[in-house]
Amino acid sequence: MPRNKKSLIQEKTQELRTLCEVEMVFINYSPYSDEPKVFPNHGGKIKTFQNFKELAMSEISKNMVTRDEFTEERIKKLEKNLLKIKKENRVKEITNEMHEVLNGKTIS
Rank of each mutant, 00 (worst) to 15 (best):
F49L: 15
K77P: 01
E54R: 15
E73L: 10
V22L: 13
I75K: 15
N51A: 07
K45T: 02
F49S: 08
I46K: 15
T66M: 06
Y32I: 05
S108G: 06
E35D: 13
K45S: 04
N81A: 14
P2G: 04
E93Q: 12
I85F: 02
L78H: 06
E11V: 02
R17P: 00
R74D: 06
I107P: 07
P31H: 08
H99D: 14
I46D: 10
E73S: 12
N51R: 08
D34V: 05
E97P: 00
N63L: 01
E59M: 08
T106R: 10
M24P: 01
T18E: 13
K37Y: 00
H42R: 13
N41I: 01
L8Q: 12
I27H: 05
N41W: 09
E54F: 08
L19I: 02
L78A: 13
V101G: 02
L78G: 08
F70Q: 10
L16W: 00
I46G: 04
V91P: 00
T106L: 08
E72I: 08
E23L: 00
K5H: 11
E54I: 01
M98S: 13
L82T: 06
K86S: 07
I85D: 07
R17N: 05
Y29C: 01
F52K: 14
H99P: 01
I27R: 07
P40F: 05
T18V: 03
I9L: 14
V65L: 15
K5L: 13
V22A: 12
N41D: 14
E93W: 06
Y32T: 09
E69Q: 09
K105A: 04
L19Y: 04
R74M: 10
E88I: 01
K6I: 13
N28T: 01
T95Q: 07
N81W: 01
R3N: 07
N89G: 03
H99E: 15
K6Q: 12
I75Q: 15
F52H: 13
K87I: 02
L83I: 03
F49M: 15
A56K: 09
D68I: 07
F52P: 03
I107F: 09
E73M: 05
L102P: 07
I46Y: 11
I27D: 12
D34S: 14
R17T: 03
S33G: 03
K62V: 04
N81T: 08
P2F: 06
I94N: 11
G104D: 05
S30D: 05
A56Q: 05
T95L: 06
H99L: 14
S108W: 04
H99A: 15
L19Q: 08
F39Y: 15
L19P: 00
E88W: 02
E100L: 14
I27S: 11
L55D: 03
N63D: 09
M1W: 08
Q50I: 02
S58L: 14
K84F: 06
N103L: 11
F26H: 12
E72D: 10
N4C: 02
R67S: 06
S58D: 15
K84I: 03
K80W: 07
N41G: 09
K53Q: 15
F52R: 14
F70R: 12
L16M: 02
I75A: 14
L8E: 12
K62T: 11
L78C: 07
S30H: 06
V25L: 04
T48A: 07
T71V: 04
E54Y: 06
M98Y: 09
T48V: 01
